[in-house]
């Protein structure tokens, strides 16, 4: 679906990755890391200085015209809709521009307007809407139709919690329907919950590309389990634990999740004693990323 080989442009340096069809990919990085540049290269708005790019099997700069109908892009601050149009007029134009069948288009519009809750202001001009209201409309405009590739740059800016939840839910649905989604965002937790793969950028360099599970197992496999015991202290000698400590009736265990599962530990403990409460703490994604950046930055400096 999307292939980049040794691509360099502005801050992006020698970046290679392949994104298969149907994946939901989160692009993570600090401001200026190259997230928007990467999205613009993929949609053909920027020509790489060097390297090879193919999107839907075509060169995004020279052959963009051939797949514009399959591409849907949201770039923060660069609205695709005219502020003087009403919400409904904007969608009427979209239906004409993309040549989508009227019946299915308006059925999907009704569904999106219902879920994103913008029917009540569909006859108002876009410029009269609040940022959050307008974002709901903009996102509906990106998701409507059947785009094969959806690129979103900071799609949750201005959205309330409910709006964000609906957005991620709809992106998951689009992926399930076969669309490939690329989302650039600062919000790690949301991205990690939804995206099947993560692209971690640091000053234009690719620090990591893969699943969150692999990221954790590679860089932060130590989980911490806390158990509130009701009975005697269990014998843990047979388990390859990293460390354990006891504070009152709370047993705290650190273990490498690559070698030992939480189920195995619990099975052994519950066979010996009673437990009132269990908490398993995985390392915070932002801490893992900071750890990777710390380790890798020296390679690039």
């Amino acid at each position: 679906m999307v292939t980049l080989e040794n691509v360099s442009k502005f801050i992006i340096s020698d970046l290679s990755l392949h994104i298969p069809k149907g994946e939901c990919v989160g692009i993570i990085g600090a401001s200026g890391a190259g997230k928007t540049t990467l999205l613009k290269i993929i949609c053909g708005l920027l020509k790489p200085k060097s390297g090879y790019v193919r999107v839907l099997g075509k060169d995004p700069v020279t052959e963009k015209g051939r797949y514009k109908r399959d591409l849907s892009v949201f770039l923060v601050g660069k609205s695709a809709l005219d502020g003087y149009d009403t919400v409904k007029q904007s969608f009427e134009l979209m239906q004409s521009i993309y040549g989508l069948p009227k019946d299915s288009f308006w059925r999907e519009y009704e569904e999106l307007a219902g879920r994103l809750d913008f029917q009540k202001y569909e006859n108002k001009s876009l410029k009269s809407l609040s940022l959050g209201q307008r974002m709901r409309v903009e996102l509906a405009a990106v998701l409507i139709g059947n785009p094969k590739l959806i690129l979103l740059d900071e799609p949750n800016v201005g959205l309330d919690e409910n709006g964000k939840a609906i957005l991620w839910e709809m992106l998951e649905e689009k992926c399930r329907q076969g669309a490939t989604v690329l989302v650039a965002s600062h919000n790690l937790t949301e991205i990690a919950n939804v995206c099947t793969r993560l692209v971690l950028l640091e000053k234009g360099h690719l620090l990591y590309y893969g699943t969150e599970r692999n990221l954790r197992s590679k860089y932060a496999s130590i989980d911490v389990m806390e158990l509130k015991l009701l009975g005697a202290l269990p014998d843990l000698e047979d388990l390859p634990l990293k460390e354990y400590s006891i504070l009152g009736d709370v047993l705290r265990i650190s273990y490498d999740s690559n070698y030992l599962s939480s189920a195995e530990i619990l099975r052994l403990i519950l066979a010996q004693t009673q437990v009132a409460e269990v908490n398993i703490n995985k390392p915070d994604l932002s801490d893992i990323i900071l750890q990777i950046k710390g380790g890798k930055s020296s390679e690039f400096d």
Binding site: L45, L71, V73, A80, G99
Partner: peptide, 12 residues
């Protein structure tokens, strides 16, 4: 205002 970028992505 930068909206030329989105205009260029339209299939028209």
């Amino acid at each position: 205002n930068g909206s030329i970028t989105t205009e260029l992505l339209r299939p028209m």
